[in-house]
């Protein structure tokens, strides 16, 4: 018998006796509970699971209007020590990008070919390490910034949602020391349940091989629990929204 079969057999054997529902204070033992038969899983996939849809009621509150969500995202980003700015026009955004490039003296950037990131690279006017058709890791490591698009900005947590498809692969958003996200204001979503719904709607069933919620620049507290930014990932996170 394969280990797979042995493990599954042990699980089925163990589950012959039911455990009480959490908080019910019932005694263990008795018959396996029948509230959810194996067929019940399919029912839950269809969205009948109360637990998951309940989450929004318990999670931190998010206002309904765009202005409230924008203000919350800006507040969260500031708490996380990320640099978030909303621009009225593309012209303003590219001016700010140029100022950032000059202030940090960027010689080389890494990016991927998509509408906003390509436009940003054109504005930056520096040699670009493009990731789209494979790239040299050492060359990317030498870049001063990684410029990417994203899938969503999450007001509730101040997070940026990137995927291997929307943000030029897996390494681009973590290898260069400064991650610059170029986003549209329409990409702002209220909360985490909305972000997961977006992933499902946009990609299922062919999900990108990596989907990541980035919540502020890389950090550690492993030395005396003192916060240090830039442990292994980017030391700086800039989110420019237009």
């Amino acid at each position: 018998m394969s280990e797979r079969k042995k493990i599954l057999a042990r699980i089925r054997e163990a589950l012959q006796t039911a455990a009480p529902r959490p908080g019910s204070h019932a005694e263990p033992g008795g018959k396996p509970h029948t509230g959810l038969t194996p067929g019940g899983i399919a029912a839950r996939s269809a969205g009948h699971d109360p637990a998951a849809s309940e989450a929004r009621r318990w999670l931190p509150k998010v206002g309904g209007s765009f202005e409230e969500q924008l203000a919350l995202f800006a507040q969260n980003a500031a708490d996380l020590k990320a640099n978030f700015q909303l621009f009225a026009s593309w012209q303003d955004l590219s001016t700010a990008l140029g100022q950032l490039r000059d202030a940090e003296n960027w010689q080389r950037v890494a990016s991927h070919q998509a509408e906003l990131s390509s436009q940003a690279c054109a504005a930056l006017d520096r040699p670009v390490c493009w990731t789209d058709r494979g790239y040299d890791v050492l060359a990317m490591e030498q870049c001063d910034a990684g410029v990417t698009e994203c899938d969503a900005l999450i007001a509730q947590t101040g997070s940026v949602l990137v995927t291997s498809r929307s943000a030029g692969g897996r390494a681009l958003s973590v290898l260069p020391p400064h991650h610059v996200v170029i986003a549209r204001r329409s990409q702002l979503v209220a909360d985490l349940p909305a972000a997961f719904a977006l992933l499902q709607a946009k990609y299922a069933p062919e999900f990108p091989s990596m989907m990541s919620f980035i919540t502020g620049p890389s950090r550690t507290g492993d030395i005396e629990r003192i916060l240090v930014l830039g442990a292994h990932g980017p030391k700086k996170l800039t989110i420019f929204c237009v």
Binding site: G134, T157, G169, V174, F207, P208, S212, G221
Partner: peptide, 24 residues
């Protein structure tokens, strides 16, 4: 775990590098 609103990186992996992806 750490008194954070969300940990810095929460990443879901769905497979090895897929066709058309840059790396992985």
């Amino acid at each position: 775990g750490a008194g954070q609103p969300l940990t810095c990186y929460n990443t879901m992996y769905a497979g090895p590098r897929q066709p058309g992806e840059a790396d992985g």
